[in-house]
């Protein structure tokens, strides 16, 4: 694990991203505060519909200002990204912030050659001429582990394999040597062996360019492997935040513990897959007060939840929302507090 600087690179304060549904704005990301430091991998985990991707796209400003409201502060270099205009944002995107998409096939333009797509960012952010750009493209392709770079640069996305496409995506994100890389589930669309390669690649490249990575994922295996710090999101809120080792050794919030509990264990004799009851409440039906997780732990007494759950510091860098974790037990193991 590389040296994580203490300097804050990106500070998110009270970020609220709301979508308009029939003239009412419903927050999908609600009051999220996070910091990202240099050379750090911050993982954001949570199940589908928790607002992870919305958080990611808010950082790079991909939201349509008519249908989506982004409030709060996303501070980078004394600039609040939440208030930038498109033109101002275009100076940052691709240069200071790189974005890696989930599905590389749909995120690559099917009718542009790989080389052109990687060069796209270079055209807008550097003064390199065509020859120099071509050289840089080949360099980038080799950097992400593509062996015959000159051939691949002339190919179209459909001619590449899934792993190669994701490598190309990473090359595109890296083209401007960004200080921040936002990776939105970069390994979800890939098979397991390729996942490991891509993660290794991401990690080694990070060591090289010392950027901070925000890694959005729902795969706790990925988190354990490369993250430095983890924030667990549930229903638009961060419910637990801790250094990775602390989170896996000492999970506090019922949701985190349920998530960890539901990882299938190959050596376990228990054939039943552990699940979390119910599902994430939809955006419009989300309770706006009280503990948002309470509907999924109905066996707990109402009184264990806070009225207005806040993040409480329970250890160095370890934050937990609500007080219900102190009283939580798994339903089928009634009475045992440790689960």
């Amino acid at each position: 694990m590389g040296f994580v600087s203490t300097k804050e690179l990106l500070t998110i304060r009270n970020l609220r991203t709301s979508f308009r549904i029939k003239d009412t704005f419903y927050p999908a990301v609600d009051d999220v505060s996070l910091t990202l430091r240099k050379n750090e991998i911050l993982a954001i985990v949570g199940e589908s519909g928790c607002g992870k991707s919305t958080l990611a796209t808010s950082i790079v400003g991909l939201h349509n200002s008519i249908h989506t409201k982004v409030e709060g502060e996303i501070l980078y270099n004394n600039q609040n990204l939440a208030n930038l205009t498109e033109v101002q944002f275009n100076k940052l995107r691709g240069n200071d912030i790189g974005f890696i998409f989930q599905d590389p096939l749909s995120a690559l333009n099917p009718l542009m050659r790989i080389g052109e797509q990687i060069a796209e960012g270079l055209i807008y952010h550097t003064k390199l001429n065509k020859k120099q750009r071509e050289a840089r493209v080949l360099e980038l392709l080799e950097q992400v582990g593509i062996s015959n770079a000159s051939r691949v640069a002339n190919q179209f996305p459909h001619q590449l394999s899934g792993g190669m496409r994701q490598r190309v995506m990473i090359a595109i994100a890296l083209s401007g040597k960004p200080a921040i890389i936002v990776a939105d589930e970069p390994t979800t669309a890939l098979d397991v062996t390729i996942q490991a390669q891509i993660l290794d690649l991401l990690k080694s490249l990070q060591d090289e360019i010392q950027s901070g990575i925000i890694l959005i994922t729902h795969d706790l295996g990925v988190v354990a492997e490369i993250a430095d710090r983890v924030a667990v999101m549930y229903a638009g809120e961060i419910i637990e935040e801790a250094p990775v080792i602390e989170l896996f050794r000492n999970p506090k919030h019922p949701y985190t513990r349920s998530l960890l509990n539901s990882i299938p264990q190959t050596h376990s004799e228990n054939e039943k897959l552990e699940i979390i009851q119910g599902m994430v409440p939809s955006l419009m039906k989300l309770p706006r007060e009280g503990c948002r997780f309470s509907s999924r732990v109905p066996w707990l007494d109402e009184s264990v939840h806070e009225k207005n759950p806040k993040l409480h510091e329970v250890g160095p860098g370890h934050l937990v929302r609500c007080t219900c974790w102190q009283h939580f037990y798994f339903e089928d193991k009634e009475g045992s507090v440790n689960g």
């Binding site: 991909l62 989930q102 995120a107 690559l108 960012g121």
Partner: peptide, 10 residues
């Protein structure tokens, strides 16, 4: 997505 991807490149 590829249009968004282009946007993220500035």
């Amino acid at each position: 997505d590829y249009i968004s991807a282009s946007k993220t490149m500035g």
